[in-house]
Amino acid sequence: MSKAKETVLEIDFNALTHNFNYLKSKLQPQTKFLAVVKAFAYGSDAVEIAKHLQKIGIDYFAVAYVREGVALRDAGITTPILVLHPQSINFKTLIERCLEPSLYSAHVLDEFIKTAEDLSQKNYPVHIKFNTGLNRLGFDQKDRETMVSKLGSTTAVKVKSIFSHLAASEDLNENDFTEQQIETFKSIAETFKTQSGTAPWLHLCNTSGILNYPEAHFNMVRSGIGLYGFGNSEEEDKNFKPIASLKSVVSQIHEIDKGKSVGYNRAHISDRNERVATIPIGHADGLSRVYGNKKGFVFINGEKAYIIGNVCMDMIMVDVTDINCKEGDEVIIFDKVHTASEIAESAGSISYEILTALSKRIKRNFLP
């Protein structure tokens, strides 16, 4: 693997395949696997990730918004795509591009049925989202009868699945709450089947649900962060391989005298004679200002170098006083060893945030 000569995000398809196979090993053969590729596939590249997963046998994709699904269709992705948070203004496009909506409220259900009928659809596949405790999106249990009645009064749509979302499946201290969500979902599913006379697929588990609650795998599971290399626990992280490595290069090294300032607003004042390296990555690339002033760090020649001063739009400065390095040396922001979780935790954040914040202007290299 060649050393970075500019800021680059390396995407390792072998690691992606490993994570897919590990998660698949937790499932029964008949259980379907949905890959969540929203937010540019968690900051990597949704099209390239989806192409690879389609090639190795994924059953379904999920995106957040219609335009994300359209981008996949434009790239030749033919696998079914669930849109998790569609807006009614995009329903016509959704149908035209053979995307499948999550319907999560009476208003959204009414609007989609109307659009489907106006476009002369027959049994268009939809997915009904129930709220079982996350309190974010989804029908309440009390809405069930009205919703089933509306679905039964049209032939334009057909329920392909009903689903919900676990709130704390990664936290075993919240086991009682998660078990309650699972039981609530089972009750909703049984009543829905009885009232509607249909037997749609059921899915509830996210990555941590797959790992911690095998009894709740039902007909399909959904994984996002697990595919990208994180198991949401120290123990499970050992079984995954982060697919993304963010690297850069030392552009310049300055000798800073004691008492001199570094960066905007003079946020760093040197308390000794320092060597300071400038690196071409900043908050416009997704490395938040939160990581400035020694909250965040990078690795140069295996040594931790703290970010000093404020993160700039296109640059950071790091303290390399005690590090043997030179201009042109490779810089690791995160990789398989020094993971995105490690730098995120330094600022009280999580891997999801730093990954999904990565700018599209960062060059992507794909490793076979």
Rank of each mutant, 00 (worst) to 15 (best):
D110S: 13
S161L: 02
D171C: 05
P125E: 12
A116Y: 04
G152W: 01
P125Q: 11
V126Q: 13
V159D: 03
N175C: 13
D176C: 10
E174C: 13
I128L: 12
I113H: 05
E190D: 14
K142S: 08
A116P: 02
L84V: 12
I113C: 05
E117D: 08
G152N: 07
D171P: 01
R136Y: 13
T132E: 02
A106T: 14
G138T: 10
Q121C: 09
T178I: 15
S102L: 11
S105I: 13
L84Q: 08
T146C: 00
L137S: 09
Y124E: 04
K186M: 12
A106D: 13
T155K: 15
Q180S: 15
V108P: 01
S161W: 06
A156K: 04
Q181F: 09
A156Q: 00
H107W: 12
A156P: 00
L99A: 04
I95S: 04
Q121A: 10
Y124L: 09
G138L: 05
V159C: 11
S161F: 07
L103W: 07
A167I: 10
F139T: 07
K92A: 10
A116N: 02
V159I: 10
L151M: 08
L103Q: 11
N90P: 10
F163Q: 03
F185A: 02
E174V: 02
N173M: 07
G138I: 08
V157W: 00
D143V: 06
S169N: 06
Y104Q: 11
E100T: 08
E190A: 15
R136W: 14
E117I: 00
L119M: 14
K114Y: 09
T178K: 05
A156I: 00
K114L: 12
G138Y: 01
N173E: 15
A156C: 01
Q141E: 06
K114I: 08
K160N: 12
N173I: 03
L94F: 03
D140L: 05
Y124I: 02
S88V: 07
S161N: 10
A189I: 06
E145M: 03
T155R: 14
S164P: 03
S105E: 11
G138W: 06
E145F: 04
K92T: 11
K114E: 09
S164T: 12
I162T: 04
A106E: 15
P101K: 02
K158F: 03
D140F: 04
A167P: 09
A168Q: 03
K150Y: 08
Q181I: 10
R97M: 09
E190K: 15
Q180M: 13
L103R: 14
T154A: 07
H127Y: 15
K160R: 13
S153W: 03
F91W: 12
S164R: 04
Y124S: 05
V159R: 06
L134W: 14
N135P: 07
M147Q: 00
K142N: 01
Q181D: 09
F163S: 04
Y104L: 02
S161C: 02
K142Y: 08
H107P: 01
F185P: 06
E100M: 13
K158P: 03
K129Y: 10
N131R: 10
F177K: 15
I182C: 04
T154E: 05
D176R: 14
E170F: 12
E96W: 10
K186P: 00
